[in-house]
């Protein structure tokens, strides 16, 4: 088992004439938490979505968990089982209860029996602090609760790595903390995580490595103390000034 779990090299992605990713090289080691920050339109969500091939890159390779995602002959469904994904819009299955949201893929994809799937689901609901919502429908939950259920759903597949695509951007401010708390616990338990986020405080405290992206390239990367605390590039400095102190961002 190699030390590196995600290896992206020479990644290019364009939507029509719009070039969104212009040659990305990056990697995530097992057990690492990597945060991707950057202005909107910088390509960070597209990069994340290329990792589990929700977007198909135009060039470059993506290796995840010893699967070459970009190989046309890869068993993509099998490869994705090991990659948990949490979306900005939660994307819980609206017609299924919380329990069924957590068990359906276990049963249909991993072929677990009902009993086992349910116990895994319960365990993961407990991890996100929502055991009592097991029989609720998604529409009965707050945004923060929905997102925690979505995290539990991804965890129920026992993935080797978790991808988070701006998981708190759609939440009311008072609900952000619960979701970040769950993610922090996950990180402390040693889960490998790749997180696109605007939460600088979270990135600073939880990440092992921070990538700053702008204009489809990785401008700067390193430990959070360096990238967020003492950015070297002017673009990073400008971005952080705007994000950390929005009221006084005159420049």
């Amino acid at each position: 088992m190699s030390d590196v779990i995600i290896e992206v090299s020479g990644l290019h992605k364009a939507f029509g004439n719009l070039e969104v990713l212009k040659g990305i090289d990056m990697s995530v080691k097992r057990g690492e938490v990597v945060c991707i920050i950057g202005p909107s339109g910088s390509g960070k969500s597209t990069l994340l979505r290329c990792v589990n091939l929700l977007e198909e890159p135009n060039a470059g390779t993506v290796l995840v968990n010893d699967f070459e995602m970009t190989d046309p002959d890869v068993d993509i469904d099998k490869a994705r089982r090991g990659i948990g994904m949490v979306f900005q819009g939660f994307n819980l299955f609206g017609h299924l209860s919380v329990l069924d949201n957590l068990t359906i893929a276990q049963r249909k994809v991993l072929k677990r029996d009902a009993e086992e799937a349910k116990s895994v689901a319960k365990e993961n609901l407990r991890r996100v602090g929502l055991e009592e919502k097991i029989n609720s429908m998604p529409s009965q939950l707050s945004g923060g609760q929905q997102q925690r259920v979505a995290i539990a759903r991804a965890l129920s597949m026992q993935p080797a790595v978790m991808l988070f695509d701006e998981p708190t951007s759609a939440l009311d401010p008072e609900l952000v903390g619960d979701v970040l708390g769950v993610m922090r616990t996950l990180a402390n338990e040693g889960m490998t995580m790749l997180v696109v986020t605007h939460e600088m405080q979270f990135a600073r405290e939880v990440a092992d490595k921070v990538l700053f992206m702008d204009g489809g390239v990785v401008v700067e990367e390193g430990p959070p103390a360096q990238v967020i605390g003492d950015p070297q590039h002017e673009r990073t400095q400008t971005f952080l000034r705007r994000v950390l102190n929005p009221v006084h961002a005159h420049d």
């Binding site: 979306f87 819009g89 994809v109």
Partner: peptide, 15 residues
């Protein structure tokens, strides 16, 4: 049906 539903299903390994 919102496309996010398919994305969530596919990312859980469903065909």
């Amino acid at each position: 049906v919102p496309p996010g539903q398919v994305e969530a299903a596919r990312s859980l390994g469903m065909s």
